[in-house]
Amino acid sequence: MTALVDQQARSAAAAPSLFLRMRRSRWGYVFVSPWVVLYLFFGLYPLILSFYLTFFNYSFVTPEDRTFVGIGNWVDGSTDPLFWKSLFNIVINQSTFILLKNGLGLLIAALLFRITWGARLFRTIYFLPVITSTVVLMTIGDNLASPGGPAQKILIDAGIISGPAFWKSDDTLPMIIIAFINTWKWFGISTIILLAGMYGIDPRLYEAAVVDGAQGRQLFRFITLPMLRPQLFFLLVVDIINGLQMFTEVFSIGFNIYGGINHQALTPVLYLYAQAFDRSNVGYASTLGLLLAFLIAALTVLQFKFVRSEID
């Protein structure tokens, strides 16, 4: 207690009192207050609510009938085969997508880096899918990839597939094909972020390497790629956080909220949507949301630990 008084007295002598400083910068509080208030209601409160809900059997329609189920939802969630199936699906989808999207982005960025004439036009075109809505792109993608559609016709003519493929009922193809369509949509972002990174590399590094006898591919392998690590890391972190929460793509390409008859296109968010809004298992859906959030957080921490430490 005396220490506190002491400290206050000392700080009052050294600098204007806390109250005075707060008054002088009162506009600071006013300006951040909209966010603070909104976050209390639509961030912090739901956060607490989500933990609370996991311990109940709860439905929107009859909230007063909620029953306490303890850790029942947690046990069910972590052993639910459909939840695991959805995780399996999303891992297949995202590993394909992240590899394709960033690989293609890197290739295109490396090519654009070499040219000046027409670079802007190419960039404009590659960026077009980024700004277009997912529902529109999935509508187009669905038609292009459909049995009898143009993409399959090319594959049949080239002899890669023998006949029309009804890929939507296949076990793994839906996730792969959605990854391809999503690559078309998003590789433009990887391209411009990596291109910006390439322009940021000190040209003297290349000059020094050329003096030492390095050539085209070696320059890319030993200078460009290592120098782009911060950008690649950023893309990886953001891709994983966003990708694991995929919903609209699957739904708007025509799968129901259970991801098809065999759940071949079920994603975790699709599944928790189905649990909450179709089966009215709100407490259970909330638990699935938390499980997924923990998983994403764990993956992000792992990336910062292992990938980031290599950069620094």
Partner: peptide, 27 residues
């Protein structure tokens, strides 16, 4: 504006960015 508590609020704000949006969906 160097208002007292600013850095704490800002730090907290950055922390909230790390929480995946899916968590907020149902609640």
């Amino acid at each position: 504006i160097p208002f007292p508590g600013r850095d704490r609020i800002f730090g907290f704000m950055l922390l909230t960015m790390m929480i995946p949006g899916v968590l907020f969906l149902i609640p």
